[in-house]
Nucleic acid binder design. Structure first.
Length: 541
DNA sequence: TCTGATGCGTC
DNA sequence: GTCGGAC
DNA sequence: GTCCGACGACGCATCAGA
């Protein structure tokens, strides 16, 4: 009961500080076991981040279970669901007054999620969920659904949960963030904070940490300006997060190609190796040949890098690499069929751990030197790095990176430490759109959550020159302001051809300029093509 | 036995 | 991945 | 500056039902 009440109170206020205060109050009122569960729930997950278990319960199973639990007709259910396109709200409306509520604590809920995870097949999962929902209050059912979908929609996620932990147990926020980065488990972090043991979280081999992220910038000039500004601040006083730059008049930046693969963190000793993905999932089994060779390192290492598709000195595309993602077949099978497989290599660009020594608080310049000193097994490469001294040099490196068929550039401060999980001002990425395309909107759909009552999701098409037909090529809303969405909503309501539930075909008279990074074959759109990373640049009038 | 729908995780 | 909005 | 939410594309695994 406590959990849902706190959730409702948090949802009711837009003020972040107030949300944090409410959450902190709740955290300090519960025991360790409940604390570990509740903190994870408030990040929108049933299980901790490093946990490999998945529930396999999505919208379809949830909606069928809700309908069954409330014993209402399909038509009535559809009417409620269509009225707000938000699974949590739908759950509340559907269950309200139609269930027999029995006591259900937060530890019961965790046991329930564990049972749900163990069941095989959507039919069994739907049955179990339906039976459970029938015994909950509508509010409890709503929060079970919110956690199952991963969408709390209370304006709070991991960042504010960290703040609440710091506040509840009167420990520095930085220490909480750091412990969470090292553990990848907000629940354990909270318990350590409560018991004043945050220092027990430390970097160690085979425990993945969050990776450092880069902030996007549109131009080389914008990136250069960032570094000039940082250097100016560092000259004036003692630097806080980075070592001082005294004696360097001209800022120097490190520039690397940005590879189009998947981010990977490799942990290796001579007896064991593991590969983790960007969100800390173990993906060793998907790249057994990399993992096997990693045991040839003569030191214990944690490498940060990118796994890319690569054959015969020729870089393949992300599209090729995707064929190897998401596989579950065991290592043996993969070797047997490897002739048909997409070959990959590990491109290392950072070194985080070397023979028992954490390098997180070592400057990038030195980490790079140590990385260069490693003897690499085959299928491993080191991303080459060059120093740049101006926006122009960054720009010309960008052009060279594109000639090498890479996505763009990473630009890094050589003095910076490695800050896990941060998208700070030390790493920047430079990518540019491939081109823009003028497309015409042929369909519009109601959004979710706060975009519930606006037509925020547009299907757009291009004209087939030979047949004259309009063929869909993608969807997008990203790039429009709320005001523009409101305006287009009005227009499309007045120009609807046919309604199909939340989706409607509209008169093809709005032309959008859509930017994208690449174009690829597709079976999802009848044009046979799709855009990668589509976003709306402008409304043509 | 095959196929389409669904869920998940990568960008 | 992208982007806009709120604090 | 940072966080959050609302969205795009793909391929693979799994399972229900044709």
């Amino acid at each position: 009961l406590g959990f849902t009440n706190v959730g409702q109170a948090i949802a009711a206020t837009p003020a972040k500080l107030e949300k944090v205060r409410l959450l902190a109050e709740y955290f300090s009122s519960i025991d360790d076991e409940r604390l570990a569960i509740a903190t994870v729930y408030f990040t929108g997950h049933a299980f901790p981040q490093t946990d490999l278990r998945t529930l396999q319960v999505g919208g379809s199973v949830i909606y069928r279970a809700l309908g069954g639990a409330a014993k209402i007709s399909d038509a009535e259910f559809r009417r409620i669901a269509h009225s707000h396109g938000d699974a949590g709200k739908t759950a509340f409306d559907v269950l309200d007054g139609r269930t027999v509520s029995e006591p259900f604590g937060i530890t019961d809920s965790y046991k329930f999620f564990e049972q749900l995870q163990k069941l095989r097949g959507p039919v069994a999962k739907k049955e179990a969920l339906q039976n459970r929902l029938a015994q909950l209050s509508a509010r409890e059912g709503q929060y079970v659904v919110k956690i199952l979908t991963g969408d709390l929609r209370i304006g709070l996620r991991e960042g504010l949960v960290e703040e609440a932990i710091a506040r509840a147990f009167n420990v520095p926020l930085d220490e909480v963030k750091e412990a969470n980065m090292l553990l990848g488990d907000i629940g354990r972090t909270a318990v350590l904070a409560k018991n004043n043991e945050l220092e027990r979280a430390e970097l160690s081999l085979f425990r993945p940490i969050k990776c450092m992220l880069a902030s996007p910038e549109p131009t080389a000039e914008a990136i250069w300006k960032r570094f000039v500004d940082v250097a100016a601040v560092a000259d004036r006083g003692p630097a806080s997060a980075t070592p001082a730059t005294t004696g360097e008049k001209m800022p120097v930046v490190y520039v690397e190609d940005k590879f189009d693969g998947i981010r990977a963190q490799l942990h290796a000793s001579r007896t064991r190796s593991e590969i983790f993905s960007r969100d800390l999932k173990r993906i060793t089994g998907q790249f057994p040949e990399i993992a096997e060779q990693a045991r040839q390192f003569s030191e214990e290492v944690i490498l940060d890098g990118e796994i890319i598709a690569f054959a015969e000195d020729r870089k393949l595309t992300f599209f090729d690499l995707q064929k190897r993602l998401g596989r579950k077949t065991d290592a043996l099978d993969l070797f047997e069929t490897s002739s048909a497989d997409v070959p990959v290599i590990f491109v290392a660009f950072d070194l985080l751990f070397l023979d028992d020594r954490s390098l997180l608080r070592t400057a990038l310049r030195e980490r790079r030197d140590l990385l260069r000193g490693l003897k690499l097994p085959p299928k491993f490469q080191i991303a080459s790095v060059v120093a740049a001294h101006s926006a122009n040099e960054i720009e010309s490196e960008f052009k060279r990176a594109r000639l090498r068929l890479n996505e763009g550039l990473m630009v890094k401060n050589p003095q910076s430490f490695y800050s896990p999980g941060r998208r700070g001002m030390f790493w920047f990425k430079l990518k540019k759109e491939l081109a823009t395309l003028d497309v015409v909107v042929v369909g519009a759909e109601l959004g979710h959550g706060k975009r519930n009552h606006v037509l925020s999701d547009y299907t757009f098409a291009v004209r087939d020159e030979s047949s004259g037909e309009l063929l869909p090529i993608g969807k997008a809303y990203s790039g429009l302001t709320d005001a523009e969405i409101a305006e287009l909503t009005e227009h499309f309501k007045d120009n609807t051809l046919v309604e199909h539930g939340r989706y409607r075909e509209v008169k093809p008279d709005i032309v959008l300029e859509v930017a994208f990074n690449s174009i690829q074959p597709s079976t999802r759109h009848s044009s046979g093509l799709a855009l990668r990373f589509p976003r709306i640049k402008a409304i043509r009038r």
